[in-house]
Computed example of a mutant assay.
Amino acid sequence: MTIRAYAAFEQGKPLEPFEYEPGELSADEVEIKVEFCGICHSDLSMLDNDWGMTSYPLVPGHEVVGTISQVGSAVSHLGPGQRVGLGWMCRSCLVCDQCMSGNHNRCQEVEAGGATIIGRHGGFADHVRCQASWAIPLPEGVDPKSAGPLFCGGLTVFNPFVKNEIKPTQRVGIVGIGGLGHMAVKFANKWGCEVTAFSTSPEKESEARELGAHRFLNSKDAESLKSATGSLDMVLVTVNAPLDWDAYVNTLRPGGKIHIVGALPSVEVSWFPMLMGEKSLGGSPIGSPQTTRDMLEFAGRHSISPIIEEFPMSKVNDAMEKLRSGSPRYRLVLTNDFD
């Protein structure tokens, strides 16, 4: 078969129509007929080769929702017509210590870390392929049209609650009310936490509260940050911008953690307050297939979905330009219009 897609042939260039032959479907793979594909900032980073790992032609797209069109000979738990989603990772070895301990997203034993758009063609296409273990069925209550961003952005902000064993009685701060942050506020609220939203945009206060924030602080205002001193168990940082890290450390209770999911180049923090308060600093990427299942189940149960803007896939360059300008509200989703 021939897969139709949109690809960039050079760094930073617009996406163009592209066709390729995927070859024979591997025994452990499924092929997904793409219905919707979210656009993540990582797609833009790959287009611009910001991380020095892009190979061209590049077909971006790693927030896929669609129906299975083919299954490999070794796949028995999924079948044609079943609606599934695919995120940043499309393959893991399944036998290394990380996979065997349930941390498939930390597998380093497959080429390019098993990422959907590194050395492979992604979901800005009519079909995409992946290892069956990374094709996650959509549960009841999850809207397929808006589900794509859950498979990368949603999972990215859900995983810290799992990894840090956050309790419903705890208090959580979310830094940045954007593509990741608006979903983080929703998850934190339904987790049962008291939620503080930090933003440089005071005009977002009303919406942040509608999303589930109990308190809103202007992060440009030093006195506003001081008002949160010693009040938070986790500060989840969803932005890529440098911050006054010591000010955020100051908002933590003893034993609290700053958890970063933004792709920051570096972090500088005074160590003594961390040491004396037994505070910690960490981060995480996406999550395992099981964490993805749990996230989707949680999202469906609590009617959590990202706020999206839709574009037909044929207008992908318009959508990418909107992302580049920083104006989406809050996630962009492409609809397959190849047919």
Results as ranks from 00 to 15, higher is better:
Ala5Met: 05
Tyr6Gly: 05
Glu10Phe: 07
Lys13Trp: 08
Pro14Met: 09
Pro17Tyr: 06
Tyr20Phe: 01
Pro22Thr: 04
Leu25Ala: 08
Ala27Arg: 06
Asp28Cys: 09
Glu29Cys: 04
Val34Tyr: 10
Glu35Trp: 12
His41Tyr: 15
His41Val: 14
Ser45Cys: 08
Leu47Glu: 14
Asp48His: 14
Trp51Met: 12
Val64His: 11
Ser73His: 11
Ser73Met: 12
Gly81Tyr: 00
Gly81Cys: 02
Gly85Lys: 00
Gly85Glu: 01
Met100Trp: 09
Val110Gly: 12
Ala112Ile: 07
Gly123Asn: 05
Gln131Lys: 02
Gln131Tyr: 01
Ser133Ile: 05
Ala135Asp: 01
Ile136Lys: 00
Glu140Trp: 05
Gly141Leu: 01
Asp143Ile: 00
Ala147Met: 03
Pro149Leu: 01
Pro149Trp: 00
Cys152Asn: 03
Gly153Pro: 08
Phe158Val: 03
Asn159Trp: 13
Val162Trp: 12
Lys167Thr: 09
Gln170Ala: 04
Ile177Trp: 04
Gly178Ala: 09
Asn189Met: 04
Cys193Gln: 03
Ala197Leu: 05
Pro202Tyr: 07
Lys204Asp: 05
Lys204Tyr: 02
Glu205His: 04
Glu210Val: 10
Leu217Asn: 14
Asn218Met: 11
Lys220Arg: 15
Leu225Ala: 14
Met234Leu: 13
Val237Gly: 12
Val249Asn: 12
Thr251Met: 15
Gly256Val: 00
Ala263Lys: 10
Glu268Ile: 06
Trp271Asn: 12
Leu275Arg: 15
Lys279Arg: 08
Gly287His: 04
Ser288Trp: 04
Pro289Asn: 04
Leu296Asp: 03
Arg324Phe: 01
Pro328Asp: 00
Val333Gly: 06
